[in-house]
Design a protein around this nucleic acid. Structure first.
Lengths: 353, 353
DNA sequence: ACATTATCTGCAAACGTTTTCAGAACAATG
DNA sequence: CATTGTTCTGAAAACGTTTGCAGATAATGT
């Protein structure tokens, strides 16, 4: 490839000058700058990143660790973060990791080899060695959508338990008492959201029936479907279901459809996240909206401040959320309404922060 | 950070020896190997990628260019490609580009700066300069899900027109004659699939009514919804709709739901791609399945062969596809059937390749 | 006129690796 | 014991940048 020396030779100056021109430093004669720029353009020269970052000891690269099975919520999140980071002048390197120690170890090795300027975790890894590395403080870290109190790392998240409580309370407010729960086993938010569900019922004086609770391994749509079918097979009456994520909820909707049950007339369904597609389902999914864009931007902002070693401003990193009511929820045993009676999409929005 | 020299100093040998140990070369005394390995482990030394690729003049990195609004089909595709590339020993660098010249130009600069070993395009960019670079042959390139005959680059794709024809023919076979089309304006497959629709109708002797055709700007779900609403507003009777992608189809389903129309009793809907969620919609989406995994693996395979400069085996790179019948399609004007009468999920599959 | 300062340029070192080359140590062979 | 071969090791060059330093030229102030 064409290197800085080639340009130097062609333009008849030293490599130092070329460097100064392409990095827009001062102290280079306009006439020479012109000539160099012309040669650069003509040859299509682009400085070699590897060489550059070696001498600068900075890579201008932030790594994002994310499950290889990332869901749509995480996808929107990392898109936002990537855009924001780009505005701060950083590029993004993605590490898609599987839910296996071995995959995480490989990821960690790669991270170390890349000499990243920072790491954003959108994935709660399992391997303790990974957290040990993050906690070591050799590189700025931001946790996104979860927290680890014991590590004292910066973290961006919502109060998962409150969000789940809001969803459950909404169902209770509609008059439901026989409310099911579908949640996942991995990741702390699965348990946190389940806790929110439990505490909402408790506060409302509703007995918690373990027959109405099912934990599925992951948060896939298929797991949501399986969870709902399990719930139905238990024959414990249910008039509403709270699914810990929208993707679980979508699977639940599918299971209800397959079982010939109508939503929301027979069963109401509520999720959490408000992924893009939630508004386009039929019926549209009632859910709790996380402020994805704000969270992503904030994650990038904190990362930029950490790298610049400037003080982190004190803005809270625990975000608010809001209830988005669509058509998948209604009062229990409501008489069937035709599609023409549908409420406007996302007609009612309750805020909270 | 801890460098090879540090290890050398601590272990009391030269950097050359360290290099030989970590790269598992022969000719190093077992005793010394042990000692070095111990130091490496203790210090957590990991070789610096930048320095490494600088001297090797290889980055072991393949770039994947993909729209920042990548849909679920593309997402599954790039996951597969990434896994396969990893097996070949390459890591993957993602370039999410926007549908703008400026974003593409920036992407191109970055690509050049990274000195990639190869580039896989899952995105039909617009900027001619981009194609000029690809065509120059300075780096191996594989086009994925589209082709550019004039560039003579390796390409992985299906026969888009035939796929659309299969979808349309299926609807015709069910007895539909008043078939709508929703397609997008960008990307060649939008036009190709529209052509397939047209030629299927023509072959069946059905008049093509431009009132039943709508082109929307992108392929988002919202565009699908808007397209369907446009179609409905034209008051030209329609008993079925072919949407050029599943995401458009999902939007169409939503619009029908909002309009109080039943699927498939009032209108049948068929898409293309068979994205994951298609099976979990209610009703499940009838669609054409592209062999995503096979295509992804093949793309990685060709890339590996190109980089190794070994001969590309002659296997065809045009892939077959199959019709997956779910519940969103039926005969025109069929009497309403209850959900309990649903066919098994994906009950009928027609193959073709 | 001279000293001072500002502007410009190139040399050379450094960043962290890999690899060629040459030489050392040792064993095996004649 | 000399020769050859094998196994092992380190010195040094190279990869493509950036930058401190020193020197050169030009502009400015006395």
């Amino acid at each position: 490839m064409v290197s800085i020396k080639d340009i130097a030779r062609i333009a008849g100056v030293s490599p130092s000058t070329i460097s100064r021109v392409v990095n827009q430093k001062k102290y280079v004669k306009p006439e020479i700058r012109e000539r160099v720029l012309a040669v650069v353009k003509e040859t299509g020269y682009v400085p070699n990143n590897a060489a550059r970052s070696m001498v600068l000891k900075r890579t201008f690269t932030v790594g994002i660790v994310i499950p290889d099975t990332f869901n749509m919520f995480q996808r929107q999140l990392f898109s936002t973060i990537e855009h924001s980071l780009e505005e701060y002048g950083y590029r993004t390197l993605f590490f898609f990791v599987k839910w296996e120690e071995e995959s995480e170890t490989r990821c960690l090795r790669r991270i170390q080899a890349e000499k990243l300027d920072g790491i954003i975790m959108i994935h709660e890894v399992i391997h303790p060695e990974f957290y040990a590395y993050l906690a070591k403080g050799s590189v700025p870290v931001v946790l996104c959508t979860f927290d680890r109190d014991e590590l004292a790392l910066h973290s961006i998240h919502i109060d998962e338990e409150s969000a789940a409580r809001m969803a459950t309370n909404y169902l209770i407010g509609l008059g439901h008492t026989r409310i099911g729960l579908i949640s996942g086993m991995h990741f702390s938010f699965g348990a946190q959201r389940a806790n929110g569900y439990r505490s909402a019922l408790k506060e409302a004086g509703i007995r918690i029936d373990e027959n109405r609770i099912v934990f599925v391994p992951s948060y896939s749509t298929e797991d949501g479907r399986a969870g709902m079918l399990t719930l139905l097979s238990r024959l414990t009456p249910i008039s509403a279901v709270f699914a810990a994520t929208d993707e679980l909820a979508i699977g639940a909707l599918r299971a209800l459809y397959e079982s010939g049950l109508r939503v929301p007339q027979d069963v109401s369904v509520v999720g959490i996240d408000d992924i893009d597609i939630a508004a386009y389902l039929a019926p549209g999914l009632t859910t709790i909206r996380q402020p994805i864009r704000d969270m992503g931007k904030r994650a990038a902002e904190i990362m930029a401040q950490l790298i610049a070693k400037s003080d982190i401003d004190d803005e809270l990193s625990t975000f608010g959320f809001e209830l988005v009511v669509r058509e998948s929820s209604g009062t229990p045993n409501a008489k069937q309404i035709g599609a023409q009676d549908l409420p406007d999409r996302a007609s009612r929005i309750e805020k909270r922060s």
